[in-house]
């Protein structure tokens, strides 16, 4: 199960480094005019229950992460539609239990009607979840989950293994895979410990083993969350493997670094670059053919469903129609995808 999401700033190294001076960053960020979810979230407050408007507290990993920003937009729209108050709060940029726990406790102290959380650590956040349930506040998990899911209302996440598998299919198609030929491909990852990366790679490899015996993964390299390092890795691959046919850029930083390298070497359309995450920039590059395919998660849908299910339970006090665990498939986007589809899956920004 995934614990750390793909985007650069949630990879373990990045968050540790940034986390070292979180206080300073917070202080400075707060005096800076920032048009982001954090500014909006800061403005919202828990409404008194006197109005009988339901209040749902939503505690995500890191507010500035594009993945969570997209999730916020989906959740917010659903909350407005259903007439409930959404309190969206998390650390601005640090993905870590040490920053998440105090924020979660603070949210619970205001006694919301429902509590949605994406725990940054399955064990460390378990006590907070237990406490909420003991106080009669229903808890839902999103993206990641606590160790004991038995009392959690619902857990919605994306399927990274399946995402890796469809990435292999998309790459094979872009390379015009034919049996009997050999195709050298490489994989750019963020770090060897990022669990979403390893899940995607496992799915990718399994699909190749099953369907594409001609595809050889000749090298795997790490970007350490740095797009410039990813760029260097791809440059070196292109030198070492002049016949390179495909690159699986498994996260945002690798996508950015690989896209630049492919363009710099004039290999757009010649090397099948399959990237992850439908950031606006990536979708733009997809339309230009730099990416042969993009694998998109569905953060906005995750946020929307979380609110929908939570409100349903609060209003009906019944679990009927609420899945205990829901895994949303990752979506393949290609340059040929209809504009409406691309627009639908592009991660919205605040």
């Amino acid at each position: 199960m995934k614990q750390v999401h793909s985007a650069g700033l949630r990879s373990s190294r990045a968050s540790r480094r940034v986390g070292a001076m979180a206080a300073t960053a917070l202080a400075l960020a707060s005096i800076f005019p920032v048009a982001s979810a954090s500014a909006q979230a800061g403005a919202s407050n828990l409404k008194p229950a006197a109005t009988h408007k339901l209040v749902i507290a939503y505690n995500m990993g890191a507010e500035a992460d594009p993945f969570f920003i997209a999730m916020y937009i989906g959740a917010k729209a659903e909350a407005n539609k259903l007439g409930v108050t959404l309190v969206w709060q998390g650390d601005p940029s640090v993905y870590s239990p040490s920053t998440q726990i105090p924020i979660a406790e603070e949210l619970l102290a205001e006694h919301p009607d429902g509590f949605v959380i994406s725990p940054t650590d399955p064990k460390a956040l378990q006590p907070v979840v237990n406490q909420a349930i003991a106080e009669g506040i229903p808890v839902a998990n999103v993206d990641t989950h606590v160790q004991d899911l038995s009392k959690v209302l619902t857990f919605i996440t994306g399927n990274n293994q399946q995402g890796g598998a469809v990435a292999a299919d998309a790459m094979a198609k872009a390379m015009h895979y034919a049996p009997g030929h050999t195709y050298e491909v490489t994989v750019g990852m963020s770090s060897p410990t990022t669990t979403t990366n390893t899940a995607r790679l496992a799915g990718f490899k399994a699909e190749i083993a099953k369907k594409y015996p001609g595809i050889k993964i000749v090298s795997e390299a790490y970007s350490e969350s740095q797009p410039a390092v990813a760029n260097t890795n791809v440059n070196n691959w292109l030198t070492k493997y002049p016949n390179l046919k495909g690159i699986f850029a498994i996260d945002g930083t690798n996508a950015a670094g690989a896209a630049a390298a492919i363009q710099a070497h004039g290999l757009v359309g010649k090397v099948a670059l399959v990237g992850y995450d439908a950031y606006a920039n990536n979708v733009q590059l997809l339309k230009q053919g730099v990416f042969a395919a993009l694998i998109a998660q569905q953060p906005a849908l995750e946020g929307q469903l979380e609110i929908q299910y939570m409100v349903k339970f609060l209003r009906t006090h019944s679990r009927a129609g609420i899945p205990h665990e829901l895994t949303l498939p990752n979506i393949v986007l290609t340059p040929h995808s209809p504009a409406a589809v691309l627009a639908k899956y592009t991660y919205p920004t605040a």
């Binding site: 985007a7 700033l9 940034v18 960020a29 982001s36 500035a64 940029s93 950031y279 920039n281």
Partner: peptide, 8 residues
């Protein structure tokens, strides 16, 4: 990170 929303 905050100003760029974490994206390039």
């Amino acid at each position: 990170i905050v100003l760029s929303n974490g994206e390039p």
